[in-house]
Nucleic acid binder design. Sequence first.
DNA 1: GTCTATATAGAGATAGAC
DNA 2: GTCTATCTCTATATAGAC
Lengths: 208, 208
Amino acid sequence: MTSPHFSTKDRILDAAEALFAQHGFAETSLRQVTSRADVNLAAVNYHFGSKGNLISEVFRRRLDELSAMRLEQLAKVREHGDDDLPGTLRAFIEPALQLSIDRHGGAAFVRVIARAYAEKDERLRKFLSDNYGHVMREFAQALHRALPDISREQLYWRFDFIAGALTYAMADVGQIKRPQGVSDKEHVQRACAELVGFAAAGLSAKPL
Amino acid sequence: MTSPHFSTKDRILDAAEALFAQHGFAETSLRQVTSRADVNLAAVNYHFGSKGNLISEVFRRRLDELSAMRLEQLAKVREHGDDDLPGTLRAFIEPALQLSIDRHGGAAFVRVIARAYAEKDERLRKFLSDNYGHVMREFAQALHRALPDISREQLYWRFDFIAGALTYAMADVGQIKRPQGVSDKEHVQRACAELVGFAAAGLSAKPL
DNA sequence: GTCTATATAGAGATAGAC
DNA sequence: GTCTATCTCTATATAGAC
C-alpha cells in the first residue's frame, strides 16, 4: 500500500491522512492507521506522542505547502500588476483546488480539511488560527485593495461565503462528480474558473 | 404522543442534538446523551434501537420542518409572481438561517448539519438523499426557470457553491460573530440579505 | 527504533426484573 | 416504559524485551 523506502513516520502520516479523509478523526483507530502503514501500533505513540498530535502533523504537512503556494502566487500577481479581483481570487482558490487532485495524498487531505471545519474542536481551531491565520488576513487585505468601495463588514461576509463555497468545491472535486472523458487537470481548471467567476461576481455585487 | 416536550424520547433527542453539535457523532457517547437527558442508558435502545437510528431521528425532526418551510415559501413566491432570482434564493436561504437562531435547539442543529456534510458517512448521506433530495431538485428547477440562459452544468456548479456558502453562514450565524447591539433577528436578516445578494450576483455572472 | 503483550478505560448493546 | 447489571468489543496508551 505504501512505498517501503519511506520512513515509518511518513508512512504513518500517509496512512492517517487517507483514513481520516475516508472515515473521520474519531472513527479512525490507530490500529487502522498502523495496519495500513504496515508498522507496529506502538510506533504512533513513539513518533507522535498521541493521536491528537498525529492529527496536527497531518495538517501541518499539507497546510505549510498550501499557504506557501497561495502567498507566492499572490506575490506574483501583485508583481505583475495582475492583482485585480480575479487574479487575487485565483491565487487563493487555485492552489487549494490543485491539492484536490494531487496524486500524493493531497486528494485525501482536502476532505480532511472539510471535516476540520465542521468539527468545532477548539484545539484544532486554535492550531489552525495560530498557524495559518496570517494567510487569511493577507488575502482579506488584498481583496480590500481590489474592492475599495465595499465596507469591511460586507467584505467579511462575502469572504466567508467564498471560503464555504471553496471548501465544498474542494471536497467535491476529485469525487464522483467529474464527467467521463475529462481529465483531472481539466476538471480542476473548470472548477477553478467557475468559482473565480462566481466569487468575483458575488464580491462585486452592488451593496445593499 | 403525550406532552411531547417532556417525554423521554424528546429529551433524548434534545440532548443528542446539543451534544452532536458540540462534539460530533462518533465523539458523543450514548452515556453522555442519557446523562444529559436525565434518562436511563437503556432508554436509547428501547426508543431508537441503535445509535445510528437516533442520529437519523435527530435529523428528521428538524429537516422535515425545514423542508416544509422552504417548499412553502417557494410556492408562495411563485403564487405571487415573485419567483425571480432573489425570491427563489430567499425561499431556500431564509428558513435555513432562521433555524440558526431558533431558541428551541435549532441553533444547535445547524452545526449538526455542517458536520453531516463533512462526514462522508454513506448511510447518513443516503438517508438525506432519499428523504430530502426532492427539495434540492425542486429548487434546482426553480433556479433553472429563473436563469434559462446558463447551462445545466454551470447551474450545478453554482448551486453547489451556494450550498457551501450557506452551510458556512449557518454555522457562523449564532456564533460569536454578531456585533454588539444587534438582535438575533436583525443579524439573521442581514446575513440573509448579504447571502441572497451575493448568490444572485454569482449566479448571474456572465458565462465563461 | 521497533516489537509483543497488556493495562486501563470506555464504548454499544441486551437480558430480565419491576 | 424504565430500571439495574452486565456482556462483549474495541479503543488508546504504555511497559519492557530485543
